[in-house]
Amino acid sequence: MSLSSTLDRLHAQARQNRWLRYFAVFNRLALAAGFIPTGFVKIMGERFTSLSNNHPMGHYLEALHHTGYYYPFIGVLQMTAALLLLLPGTAALGAVLYFPIILNICILSLAVRFDGSLLTSPLMVLANLYLLCWYYDRLKFLLPFNQPPVPALPAPQASNKFPAGFFAGVVAAIALVVVGITSFDVKPYNTLADCRTQFDGSHRTRAGYHFCECIHNQGLPLDQSLAEYQQAPDDPASTP
């Protein structure tokens, strides 16, 4: 059996499972809820965070805020993708439009270790990928499968069986994201006070506080601040 036929069969079976259908609806609503408020703020021309300009993400957002009509244009795209996801007839188009936007946000959040979307953006990427797979029958013609037409497959029977294996995979994917996020030993956080808190009680308090000063007060790049932190010595041992 060809790859396209195998994917068609697996997709047809998945579409008949009501639990997977409910999960698709949940992802559509959750992703739309994630873009509507942030898109609206951009359309109104307002900044949607109170981050200091010295913060790595603050640098980016401040520059983005001053890009003229490009800033509300992003908001229009976010709102459009969200509204398309809310309508069943246009949800596939919404998932396609949504994906490059959220992927960019995810990579940006990981690059600057932005605490505000460090966890949510990777999960939103996974939710978006699920929807792209859910609408495979509408999107498969974009894939480089050069296969001759095949006879239509018989429609599988509807299933009410709970796909325990699939949702176990969902839980495992979320767990991997959480573990990956917590692997960052140092983060700038959103405020100077929160940044300093992560070093309290450690043997790297002095180096950590200097890292936070570099980020929030001096406005140094994240890579440079991390390099200085890693090269700094541990706190001197206290004498009794």
Results as ranks from 00 to 15, higher is better:
Ser4Gly: 04
Leu7Tyr: 02
Asp8Tyr: 04
Asp8Glu: 13
Arg9Met: 08
Ala12Leu: 03
Ala12Met: 10
Gln13Arg: 15
Arg15Ala: 06
Gln16Ser: 07
Phe23Ser: 05
Ala24Ile: 09
Ala24His: 06
Ala24Tyr: 11
Val25Phe: 09
Asn27Val: 09
Asn27Ile: 10
Phe35Asn: 09
Phe35Ala: 07
Phe35Cys: 10
Ile36Ala: 04
Phe40Pro: 01
Phe40Asn: 10
Lys42Gly: 07
Gly45Thr: 06
Glu46Asn: 15
Phe48Gln: 11
Thr49Trp: 05
Asn53Lys: 10
Asn53Ser: 14
Asn54Lys: 14
Pro56Ser: 08
Gly58Val: 04
Tyr60Glu: 03
Tyr60Asn: 05
Tyr60Gln: 12
Leu61Cys: 08
Glu62Gln: 06
Ala63Pro: 01
Leu64His: 06
His66Gln: 12
Thr67Tyr: 04
Tyr69Pro: 13
Tyr70Phe: 09
Tyr70Cys: 11
Tyr70Thr: 10
Tyr71Cys: 11
Tyr71Ala: 13
Ile74Phe: 11
Gly75Thr: 13
Gly75Asn: 07
Gly75Gln: 09
Val76Tyr: 05
Leu77Gln: 08
Thr80Pro: 02
Ala82Gln: 05
Leu83Lys: 04
Leu85Pro: 01
Leu87Gly: 01
Gly89Leu: 05
Gly94Asn: 00
Ala95Gln: 07
Ala95Pro: 03
Leu97Met: 13
Tyr98Phe: 15
Tyr98Gly: 02
Tyr98Ser: 03
Leu103Asn: 03
Cys106Ser: 14
Cys106Gly: 02
Ile107Met: 14
Leu108Glu: 10
Leu108Met: 15
Ser109Met: 10
Phe114Gln: 02
Asp115Cys: 02
Ser117Pro: 08
Leu118Trp: 06
Leu119Asn: 04
Thr120Cys: 06
Thr120Asp: 05
Leu123His: 12
Val125Gly: 08
Val125Arg: 13
Leu126Glu: 14
Leu129Met: 15
Tyr130Gln: 10
Tyr135Gln: 01
Tyr136Pro: 04
Asp137Gly: 08
Asn146Asp: 09
Pro148Phe: 14
Leu153Phe: 02
Pro154Asn: 11
Pro154Val: 09
Pro156Met: 05
Ser159Met: 04
Asn160Glu: 09
Phe162Tyr: 13
Phe162Val: 06
Gly165Met: 00
Val170Tyr: 03
Ala173Trp: 00
Leu176Pro: 05
Val179Arg: 10
Ile181Arg: 09
Lys187Ala: 03
Lys187Val: 10
Tyr189Thr: 08
Asn190Phe: 06
Phe199Pro: 03
Phe199Leu: 05
Gly201Val: 00
Gly208Gln: 09
Tyr209His: 15
Tyr209Gly: 14
Tyr209Cys: 02
His210Phe: 12
Glu213Asn: 10
Glu213Met: 10
Glu213Phe: 07
Cys214Val: 06
Ile215Met: 05
His216Tyr: 02
Pro221Arg: 04
Leu222Ala: 02
Leu222Asp: 00
Leu222Ser: 00
Asp223Lys: 13
Ala227Ser: 15
Tyr229Asn: 03
Asp234Gln: 13
Ser238Met: 15
Thr239Lys: 14
Pro240Leu: 07
